[in-house]
Design a protein around this nucleic acid. Structure first.
Lengths: 150, 150
DNA sequence: CATCAATGCATCGACGCCTATGTAACCTCC
DNA sequence: GGAGGTTACATAGGCGTCGATGCATTGATG
């Protein structure tokens, strides 16, 4: 007999969610900071490493940020020598992204760091809770639109 | 015997979480935007209305943001005539916050908008999922530290 | 082939958020 | 009652994010 007790309002859940989201962000930034990178930057590099060559807009969609944001971040990562931009031959508007050798090496390190951080974070949950959580999250993000900018 | 299905990795859950968090933020910004306010601003005003008079640091803690962030946001809200600052007589370092008449009126409107937005967002969940979600969120945010700046 | 809409990316301005500091007020303790 | 640590707030600097917009390229249509 779960919810019969103390019915939470939707607003309270939203509050709790946003608070937890910040905890999560902070946790990842701390852990990845030990690897000398921020969460968004590492996510981009890791994603490019996983699915290169990848177009900018695809990448943005994959990591869940707006295209303009991805553009700016990628720009910095290219300047830092972790990613390479290359104009597509098929469609000269689009940009194909790849990791450099350095980027690939760091991506491996950061992937490990990211996974470890995630495990730490979710360790207090039972496997059952974890799978329930995923279900819920997918349900919540299913109906809603993606960021604009494309 | 739930989780026997398809074991998700912690990293995937983290990805899903961060994606959902963005969906949530976007949803609230859209809905509250119809009321002419952003989510963080409305949260501050609503919280002050609920527990005035309140000190700045308490407020920051209550809404889950860093003290410096609260300071800046409150500053804007004071300029806009929604909040009032008043130096505490007991401790002249601290600032007591109250809503103005205008702030109180808007807080009511925004509270309604916030609750409606939350209900929309969580409508696809069963009451049971909702209460499970809250449990999980509280578990996750329990061990972790609050933002610095205090 | 000329035109016009659609697409892919870059850039701009603004916001919220953080950490790290600075400054003023408070408190302790000798 | 003055020195030194602590606390409350403000400010500075930087990051990631968004939506909106501009520009080049592509594709579709007559």
């Amino acid at each position: 007999m779960p919810q019969a007790r103390k019915s939470v309002t939707a607003a309270q859940v939203a509050d709790e969610f946003s608070r937890t989201a910040k905890v999560l962000v902070r946790h990842f930034n701390e852990r990845l900071g030990e690897h000398g990178v921020s969460t968004p930057r590492s996510r981009l590099v890791v994603e490019v490493a996983r699915s290169q060559p990848v177009r900018l807009t695809e990448l943005a969609l994959a990591v869940g940020i707006a295209q303009g944001t991805a553009s700016t971040l990628v720009d910095a990562l290219v300047r830092d020598g972790l990613l390479e931009r290359q104009t597509s031959a098929d469609d000269r508007r689009s940009v194909l992204l790849r990791v450099t050798a350095q980027g690939a090496a760091l991506a491996q390190d950061w992937t490990a760091g990211y996974e470890l951080a995630a495990e730490e974070l979710f360790r207090p949950l039972t496997p059952e809770q974890l799978s329930t959580l995923v279900d819920i999250l997918r349900t919540l993000s299913a109906d809603e639109a993606s960021p604009a900018g494309g």
